[in-house]
């Protein structure tokens, strides 16, 4: 499984709403592997990656949130200047656009980890793997 499932949660931009999401997940003993928030003045979309995304979805919906899923890929990027650039150049070269991406800090050896949403996920996985880019498999991604 090359692609990871990302949850998107609609949130009003109000005090307490984000912590309610976290509360619903912690009550279900679910650990967030990565998250990012896209927001406007009034509302936002919280994107979450967790191993038990199905349970997480259920827990959030039971708590009254509206949840969607999207495919993303995760990969390791050499943690040095130009590390990300080399990956993005390969995506550019095959005509893939990054819709958004987010990096997170847990360092695994020499690499940093990023999550990317491409405009064409199916093609991204097929084409970029053939150019030598390694995506993180779910099992590796969630490994502590």
């Amino acid at each position: 499984m090359m692609k990871l499932t990302q949850l998107s949660v609609f949130l009003e931009n109000r005090p307490g709403h984000l912590s309610n999401v976290c509360g619903a997940l912690s009550a279900a003993h679910l650990n967030i592997a990565a998250l990012t928030m896209a927001d406007t003045r009034e509302f936002g979309i919280l994107r979450l990656i967790l191993r038990e995304w199905k349970q997480a979805r259920e827990a959030l919906e039971a708590a009254g949130f509206v949840v969607n899923t999207t495919d993303v890929v995760a990969l390791e990027v050499p943690d040095r200047p130009g590390g990300l650039e080399s990956i993005l150049k390969q995506a550019d070269a095959v005509g893939l656009s990054v819709e958004y991406m987010y990096a997170f800090a847990i360092k695994q050896g020499e690499n940093a980890r990023i999550v990317i949403r491409f405009d064409d996920m199916q093609r991204a996985v097929e084409v970029l793997e053939s150019t030598g880019i390694t995506f993180l498999r779910a099992a590796d991604f969630y490994k502590q």
């Binding site: 998107s8 927001d39 406007t40 979309i45 994107r47 509206v66 969607n68 819709e99 949403r117």
Partner: peptide, 15 residues
Amino acid sequence: EVTEGMFGDRISQLE
């Protein structure tokens, strides 16, 4: 009220 069918993972869709 926002429902599942109205949004995906991007803010721009909602805007």
